[in-house]
């Protein structure tokens, strides 16, 4: 497989934007009641498939700082990867936030529920992660998507 230099650096820049947004708004980005602003970026695969590896790498780096540790560094990127692949297949823009909400709620919710079993039950963890994701994606992700729709040209040159 041959990847062009411009696509390669583009993927890297998406990953670092994810990390920067996560760390800038850090205290609310981790834990079972999380409101991770950077999750708004999970709408990006709607515009370009290059966002799939970009987001996955971003989550991997961002989760180094997670209190849930190694599990979060494995399941976080995994959940993002699955959600991003699903998102890239969606055609209706209003449904774009659905995969990240559902996939993260289930995978991350179960993970946090198991890890912090003394503090929170699994169904509750799923609910909390889901609520956080729902909030970020419809409050911030959707307006971001609508704003980016007007600037589709940014992504076009990477899609060949």
């Amino acid at each position: 497989m041959k990847i062009k230099a411009k696509n390669l650096t583009f993927v890297a820049s998406i990953a670092s934007i994810y990390v920067v947004l996560t760390v800038l708004f850090a205290p609310i980005s981790y834990g079972w009641i999380q409101f991770r602003v950077s999750e708004a970026l999970t709408i990006l695969p709607f515009f370009t498939p290059l966002a799939i590896p970009g987001l996955t790498i971003g989550v991997l780096i961002a989760n180094i700082f997670s209190q849930a540790g190694i599990p979060d560094m494995i399941f976080g990127p995994l959940a993002t990867l699955i959600a991003a692949i699903m998102t890239s297949k969606i055609k209706n823009k209003w449904l774009v936030p659905i995969p990240p909400i559902l996939v993260n709620a289930i995978i991350i919710g179960i993970m946090l529920g198991v890890l912090f079993s003394s503090e929170i039950s699994i169904p509750l963890a799923i609910l909390w992660v889901g609520v956080g994701e729902f909030g970020v994606l419809y409050l911030l992700g959707m307006p971001l998507l609508l704003a980016l729709e007007k600037r589709k040209d940014i992504f076009e040159k990477y899609n060949d």
Binding site: L8, A12, V19, V23, P53
Partner: peptide
Amino acid sequence: LMMSISLRFI
């Protein structure tokens, strides 16, 4: 390479 570029970009 992507990973280290993104680390450098942070």
